[in-house]
């Protein structure tokens, strides 16, 4: 079953546990600045929104890469960066409409979410269920259930 990261901003409290988990998994340090998932705070509105790569099927980054350094992980469907092939040209960072591929100046390579090989640590660390890893074919199921519960049956009297 293909799974995907599912984000519910309404549940996010802005604690950054996901950013620490991501950077620890990928860089070995607790370092939000090196996280592939980012929490954005919209202070005036009182909103926190987690944002990361959605693993597009027709991935702009992958198609744009001139050296084929971005490849599909057959098991998880993620688009992974092969660091030994990446030349750091950053064309993928231009191609991505969402800004979720970024250049790491320390290594000279680009980095993006690879779903931690099928066990995304951000979802694991999230204390509120704002980030979950669900069946890619039914990420809307919980929301459907919630609305279904609210849906009135006029005929039932």
């Amino acid at each position: 079953m293909l799974k995907s990261l599912t984000i519910d901003p309404g549940k996010c409290t802005g604690c950054l546990q996901c950013e620490m988990a991501c950077s620890y998994e990928n860089e070995g340090v607790f370092n939000p600045s090196k996280s592939r998932i980012k929490i954005f705070t919209f202070h005036e509105e009182g909103r926190f929104v987690p944002y990361t790569c959605t693993q597009c099927d027709e991935a702009w980054c992958m198609h744009a890469c001139p050296v084929d350094a971005i490849v599909i992980n057959a098991e998880t469907g993620s688009k992974d960066v092969k660091a030994d092939v990446c030349v750091g040209c950053k064309v993928c960072t231009i191609a991505c409409p969402f800004g979720t591929v970024n250049y790491n100046a320390d290594t000279g390579k680009v980095v993006k979410c690879d779903l931690c090989g099928g066990d995304p640590q951000c979802a694991e660390a999230c204390p509120t269920g704002a980030i979950t890893y669900l069946d890619a074919n039914a990420t809307g199921l919980d929301r459907m259930r919630a609305w279904a519960e609210k849906t009135d049956n006029a005929a039932r009297t």
């Binding site: 409290t13 802005g14 604690c15 950054l16 546990q17 620490m20 509105e45 009182g46 909103r47 926190f48 204390p127 509120t128």
Partner: peptide
């Protein structure tokens, strides 16, 4: 009260965001 909010790394999130 609009929402609750967390400080860095906090899994309790007691902070209040209000208007």
């Amino acid at each position: 009260l609009t929402t609750n909010a967390a400080c860095f790394g906090c899994t309790i999130a007691c902070g209040r965001i209000s208007t």
